[in-house]
Design a protein around this nucleic acid. Structure first.
Lengths: 133, 133
DNA sequence: GACAAAAACCGACTGTCAATCGGTGGCTAT
DNA sequence: ATAGCCACCGATTGACAGTCGGTTTTTGTC
């Protein structure tokens, strides 16, 4: 019985992903060096997290000599879109009105500039859409 | 050891909320009548879910005679805004650019009309903002 | 080829949380 | 008083992240 239908990541998993996006491909040791010390967790823990991320298809890895080097399977933006999309899908069952309202609401309380940014980007996307049609 | 930073609801809990938003205040029995049968769960299970929802502050309740009548503590839209906002906050640590990009991306793949809707609503909100300033 | 170091892997344990019931005990209306 | 209804408590299950310890595998080096 799946508690939540949307597969959301944990805190450490997100931190690892962020690290990978920032630093590009890295091995477990490098990631641990950056965020393991602060958190007081072992290299092993970081390894486990990265392995799970790999199993979920979020990290690609390749063996360099005998060690793994991981890299994000999705771009930061793709992942964000995916995640937000999942939540939105589970929450508002595909109802565009509600979705739009939620977006605007969130953007609004993030600051007025955000709304303007949103507007600008939309204009951009719509232009692109029209052209490609 | 918090598994996920965002407190997201379960499947049943969401269904209960949806039901309450649709039908207005109801007691556990009524909710169970609507979605318990299909799911093959007992009234008791629905009661538990509603109680948890109440403890989380998402359902208000008042005792009518000896039974509780529950009603949503937040409007549907408020809740959606809240939930999406939480996820966005945890995911993109307050970076407006990424947020905007994600919104547009999700809206885009929800259909082209959605983008237009979003645009319209934004124009609306910005007008309102300007007026109130 | 043997060996030490490094890293991956496996398995276990913990904490949290939703879902799900059963049983118990308290009101309520008759 | 008493039969029902219903809330509450507690227990169980299942999932999943975080966290390690211990074991095995791989490698580079004498």
């Amino acid at each position: 019985m799946r508690p939540t239908p949307w597969g959301l990541l944990g805190e450490l998993e997100l931190a690892v992903l962020d690290r990978l996006w920032e630093a590009g491909e890295s091995d477990a040791k490098a990631v641990h060096a950056k965020l393991g010390r602060r958190r007081g967790i072992t290299l092993n823990t970081v390894q486990s997290a990265m392995k799970r991320l790999h199993e979920k298809g979020l990290l690609a890895r390749s063996k360099i000599s005998h060690a793994f080097v991981y890299s994000p399977a999705l771009g930061r933006d793709d992942f964000h879109r995916e995640a937000v999309g999942d939540v939105v899908a589970a929450l508002l069952h595909g109802e565009a009105d509600a979705m739009v309202a939620a977006f605007v609401g969130v953007a609004e309380r993030a600051g007025d500039d955000t709304l303007a940014q949103l507007e600008a980007l939309i204009a951009d996307r719509r232009k692109a859409t029209r052209r490609s049609r």
